[in-house]
Design a protein around this nucleic acid. Structure first.
Lengths: 212, 212
DNA sequence: CGGCATCCGTGACGATACTG
DNA sequence: CAGTATCGTCACGGATGCCG
């Protein structure tokens, strides 16, 4: 039985037929950082219920956004991973992150937070500071470490092999930078973040002049 | 009473709190071409019910995506128009259009069509042909005329004051070009589209060499 | 005619409990 | 750990009615 569709011969409506249901794009947000297991997704999507997560994963598999891969030696454990079409959604999620950053001003009392939720917004800000040049930035927060590619924007869990710059901060400062309340150089000057590295990119991120 | 929120301190979740409900982004799609009246929206959003349209418009006004402006001499007629924050959604809708174009292959039996639904996908394709240069392209379909700015992508109803190129075709060909099944130069050679103008942009769109 | 409000049937969603 | 089963609630879609 086909799911509910807008029944419009329109690229935007077609995209929303697949992506428009609740939670789908947030699952994509999680998987953009790399493969995740069911319980990982459940933990980083606070508010989703178990049946809805299972249903979305099945639908997204049918829509060829994700694949499930058996993991571990024995047992039922699986990892969910974006396909090529799923990874191609980076631009969509990036656009949403850019637009939504302006509405990130206040943290509500009931709002959950995860460190890697700031990956894409930070990548956009870092890309501005870098003036469009590419580079790999490793970001270290209390909750974990991830690394970003700036042009084009990519994002993956864990430390980078050879980062051009390493940014260490807390998620409060990350939120301030992501939302535009502060710039990264301002945060560095205020002692709320550190930027390590001797590359031009590290200089641009920290606001220091660095010899090329 | 606040609407349903994801309650996540995340730019993407914040964006989806505002944009994620059914029909909202399709209303944005309509309004990106300029102000529209309630009955215009009802006509170009086949499948929406009257109460849902009214509810969305009120929510979007509260979220400062749109404003309503009284129109005409007397009477209750209003025009709905995007605010600055609403217009800033061009990048989001553009990203969705780019991703959804690949899934536009077949027109379903129950699919509705409108000419201006191809505006943003066509603008992306024309932008590729133009090699990133700006320019104004007027598009003439049976259902109406609109014009596109290529870099950055804009879209408005009606004819352009001084278009750099004029493309005339039918919406079937527009769909083929938008989805990538055909390129515009191929459609021109097949006699399914015409490109008028003596500018480099017109040359790039038609596949002809044009003297600068 | 434009701009909704009301009523109603269906289906999606959210919370919890339960199972292999 | 990775889901399925159950159930109450709410959003959506369709039809109709109202009112300036």
């Amino acid at each position: 039985m086909p799911r509910r569709s807008y029944d419009q011969f329109c690229a935007i409506a077609r995209a929303l037929d697949v992506l428009g249901e609740r939670w789908t794009l947030l699952i994509v947000r999680e998987l953009l950082g790399g493969p995740r297991r069911y319980s990982d997704l459940l933990a980083d999507l606070p508010g989703i219920s178990t049946d809805v997560l299972a249903a979305r994963l099945r639908e997204m598999e049918g829509d060829e956004l994700i694949t499930r891969r058996p993991i571990g030696t024995r047992g039922t454990a699986s990892a969910y991973e974006l396909t090529g079409a799923g990874t191609a959604l980076t631009g969509v999620v990036e656009a949403l992150a850019g637009w939504g950053s302006d509405r990130l001003e206040a943290r509500g009392a009931t709002d959950a937070v995860r460190g890697h939720w700031f990956a894409l917004p930070l990548a956009l800000r870092f890309g501005e500071l870098a003036g469009g040049r590419d580079g790999v930035v490793e970001v270290r927060l209390e909750e974990g470490v991830f690394h970003l590619g700036l042009a084009p924007v990519t994002y993956a869990d864990g430390a980078a092999a050879r980062p051009d710059a390493v940014v260490a901060t807390d998620h409060g400062t990350a939120a301030d930078v992501a939302s535009g309340r502060a710039t990264l150089p301002e945060a560095v000057r205020a002692g709320r973040a550190t930027v390590t590295g001797d590359t031009p990119l590290a200089g641009a991120l920290s606001g220091r002049a660095v010899a090329v």
